[in-house]
Amino acid sequence: MLHIENLHASTAGTEILRGVNLDIAPGEVHAIMGPNGSGKSTLAHVLSGRPDYEVTAGSVTYNGVDLLALAPEERAAAGVFLAFQYPVEIPGVGNLYFLRTAVNSIRATKGLDPIAVTTFIKMADKAMDAVEMDKSMKNRSVNEGFSGGEKKRNEILQMTMLEPTLAILDETDSGLDIDALRIVANGVNALRSPERSMLVITHYQRLLDYIVPDKIHVLAAGRIVRSGGKELALELEASGYADIEAELASKGATA
């Protein structure tokens, strides 16, 4: 269970989040939509603990733990996973070697022995098949020379193997053609379970045709300005963010 209360955060001296409130129950999938610059990615980064963001007010508790007090790797161990909008390249480090190191690091925090290599390979093979990843990606350097679609599939592969309880997908649909989008969405849907919450961040309604959320929130100027069911996405698709921005502007003028 994720509980976000009055979250304020800034980066490089500029306040981006200005009082976000959000609750996600186990098993729920929530979508965050909103115009560019509204703070969607900032929310993802603050929840996962990126160092260059400063939380100036508010709190985030996850399963009763103060998430903001944990280092990024501790949050990962607590079950938080961020699928990056721009997955990072690590030259010379084999893709599966990286993944196994991650799996074993998280296992170690739980007092578990490293996973047997054969078991790991079997699991990885299955997970790679699920996202239609070529087996040649096993030993290539992490994300190096991967196409946009391959990088996103690799994120889903990692998510599958790390079995998070809170998965945050930061604009996972950006830069994907329709086939890749379907593959990635299938991978995500396969991971939906009563124990796993998801926060799907997207600019476009398109992704939500494939990953159908329980709730949708609209983030604008650092606050959640509207919340609703999946029909809200269609409404936004029709009217765009212009109405919301206009509404905010008029509020700003009267405030």
Binding site: S48, G49, R50, P51, D52, A71, P72, E73, R75, A76, A77, F81, L82, F84, P87, V88, E89, I90, P91, G92, V93, F98, L99, T101, A102, V103, S105, I106, T109, S141, Q158, L162
Partner: peptide, 28 residues
């Protein structure tokens, strides 16, 4: 990069292990 380091840490890998992994990758 801050980016590489954060990526590793988000996946549960400690700063020390990440540094060593990135450096070894660089030297491969």
């Amino acid at each position: 990069g801050e980016d590489q380091m954060f990526y590793c840490r988000q996946r549960g890998i400690s700063e020390e292990d990440a540094t060593s992994m990135i450096v070894n990758g660089f030297c491969r």
